[in-house]
Design a protein around this nucleic acid. Sequence first.
DNA 1: ATCCCGAGGG
DNA 2: CCCTCTGGAT
Length: 220
Amino acid sequence: MPVILSGDRVRQVVATLEDTYPDAAPELDFSNPFELVIAVMLSAQCTDVRVNLVTHELFARYPDAQSLASANIEDVESIIRTCGLYRNKSRNAIAASQMIVDRFCGEVPASREELQQLPGIGRKSANVILSCAMSQDAIAVDTHVYRVSRRIGLSDASTVLGVEKDLMDATPRKKWSQLHHLLIFHGRRCCKAHKPQCQTCTVAHLCGYNASRNKSSSAR
DNA sequence: ATCCCGAGGG
DNA sequence: CCCTCTGGAT
């Protein structure tokens, strides 16, 4: 039985998480749109620490879309090899750069629809780019945001789009980006997929998921 | 073993 | 909905 929080309780959850994670911020810290496009693309199934390492080397050699567009794919592969899925990522990074150059006149497009035309950029990555490098308000729903939102009752939707909409409806536009990072931090540090740390969770008292876990564990 | 702030394709 | 692509960290 899902628990949908009222506006007041949403604010309470956000305020509590804000207090819990005062340093919540994107770990992929690129304000240059092109760099963020590539960094986000590389981040699938890979830690951000590693993305920061390989992008440092990658951008030293290919600083912009023009140079990466004409890069040798084997060179790109050798640079990003250690972050997994490297064949797809290399092909996509080059193809996306080429598309930026000859379809978008060398500028990273600033709409979600256009960003999603870039190979390797889906809805989640497009929203990250918009909110972190384009000063646009968007909520990127990744696996953490999805899982945490459903557990603590910010949404009972069963699709990424549904959760995204519920979060946008429940939160003032100017707080979307912050909410996104708070939920990711909470999902990584506490509200984990398999062993959630409900004992130390600062919003457990607001959380129906925690209540149902307590009930089922004390019942056996 | 299991998980990483996914995307594309069937 | 499902599956596959990948190496590294824990």
